[in-house]
Design a protein around this nucleic acid. Structure first.
Lengths: 97, 97
DNA sequence: ATAAAATATGAACATATGAACATAAAAACA
DNA sequence: TGTTTTTATGTTCATATGTTCATATTTTAT
């Protein structure tokens, strides 16, 4: 392995930073089950739609999720297989061990 | 999967938060190669010893690393196989794809 | 056209965070 | 004991972050 360069370190740190908030964690945990619209997501996670929208923007900007409009709703889904992987490893770490 | 509870979400978020800083990322990347003392670590990563010590405390408090004293030096090592795993997945995500 | 529904955005606020600097503590050695 | 080396800790400061509230945007239905 050895020391990784500043650029990669910053990019890697940013990925983890995106995953470093409980609301975003819970949003992602729901998204692991598949596509879902903002309102349902907010209700399931137990945060306001505004808060959900803000956090989803963060996830979108980091390209961890993508969205599509259907009528007046917007459906989000996980965008990246790596994310599910990282998430699951982290959860293993937290839950047992 | 389904929604994870607040407690797990907070714990998981905290793990990722611990990994969300470039200095800590680079410290860990060096620690992946094995045990090493604070001074060498600081020099390799290119930060002050004080900064290294502060960041190592953060990693220690999250139990991601452990330390042992040998004479007047303190050697750190990664404490957890999960961490190396999560780190590697993240790096894969960042480097290619 | 107007109203209602769903989502996004912007501003403001409180809290958290990392960096830098100074100081303390622990161990080795004169 | 006193001094030096190595690491840890405390404090201060500037910046970043998440949430809330108010407002804007987009689509559907009347």
């Amino acid at each position: 392995m050895a020391l990784i360069d500043e650029g990669d370190a910053v990019r890697l740190a940013n990925i983890f930073k995106t995953l470093s908030d409980p609301s975003r964690i819970r949003l992602i945990s729901v998204l692991l089950d598949g596509e879902i619209n903002v309102g349902s997501l907010a209700e399931l996670v137990g945060i306001s739609e505004s808060a959900a929208s803000h956090q989803l923007r963060t996830l979108r900007q980091m390209r961890l999720v993508s969205s599509r409009r259907q009528g007046r709703q917007i459906f989000y889904k996980l965008n990246d297989a790596h994310v599910a992987d990282i998430f699951q490893r982290g959860l293993d770490h937290v839950r047992h061990d």
